[in-house]
């Protein structure tokens, strides 16, 4: 399995954020997207997830166990927001996402209990999600990545609200995912503690010369 991005360009509003970004990642590899604020890290990740249309270029998953039409279908996306409902209990949230996602070929998600234990929060599944602190909510959002199998993890500032111990825990989760033949792409300022991860530097691009108008 190989994730191949060729000549990606993307816009936010009328501004061209980046141009001609290309890279390839093989199974078991991680890519850390780095760069200053506003250099287009989040935009790149949203383009990969299929949430923003690319102005040019393509991103595809080659030789996957389960061929997908759009790359986004094979991805877990952990954005700035946790995508969990405050009014529902943690268990209801995770059970819903597990059922709604379903597993792709080539792997299987773990149970809701096991996922909560894996992020160090077993035993509070019965509580409403809104009762949890910001860090706990973030960790439960990470548990969402575990309950259903997706080969590609797209992580946008995954450890922003976490303490050092939780960061180490998350690095363990990602390493484990890579060991299972997954791919991880993370945009972050903090060192994630992943060994042998490749880096992509976003320089930012002002698209004035492009002259669309």
């Amino acid at each position: 399995m190989r994730l191949l991005a060729e000549g990606l360009s993307a816009k936010r509003g009328e501004d061209l954020i980046f141009r001609d970004v290309s890279f390839g990642i093989d199974a078991g590899e991680a890519l850390i997207v780095k760069g200053a604020n506003g250099s287009g890290k989040s935009t790149l990740l949203r383009v990969l997830a299929g949430l923003l249309p690319a102005v040019s270029g393509t991103a595809r998953l080659l030789a996957a166990a389960h061929p997908v039409e759009r790359l986004g279908e094979a991805c877990h996306y952990l954005g700035h927001r946790n995508a969990m409902k405050r009014e529902l209990t943690v268990e209801e949230n995770l059970v819903f996402w597990k059922a709604f996602y379903g597993d792709l070929h080539g792997g299987a998600g773990i149970g809701v209990d096991a996922a909560a234990a894996a992020v160090g929060l077993g035993g509070i599944l019965h509580l409403p999600f809104g009762y949890l602190s910001a860090g706990q909510q973030r960790r439960m959002a990470m548990a969402r990545l575990l309950v259903a199998w997706r080969p590609v993890w797209i992580l946008d500032e995954p450890t922003a609200a976490l303490d050092v111990a939780a960061e180490a825990m998350f690095a363990g989760l990602v390493t484990n995912h890579l060991a299972q033949g997954g791919i991880a792409i993370a945009a972050t300022h903090q060192p994630l503690g992943l060994e042998g991860a490749r880096e992509l530097w976003m320089t930012g691009f002002a698209g004035a010369e492009q002259g669309v108008w």
Binding site: I124, P128, Y131, S133, Q136, R139, A165
Partner: peptide, 16 residues
């Protein structure tokens, strides 16, 4: 009590 329980689990988690 439930809020306390939620906070207590977090503390254990960060100790571990």
């Amino acid at each position: 009590l439930r809020r306390h329980a939620a906070r207590a689990v977090g503390r254990e988690g960060s100790d571990a």
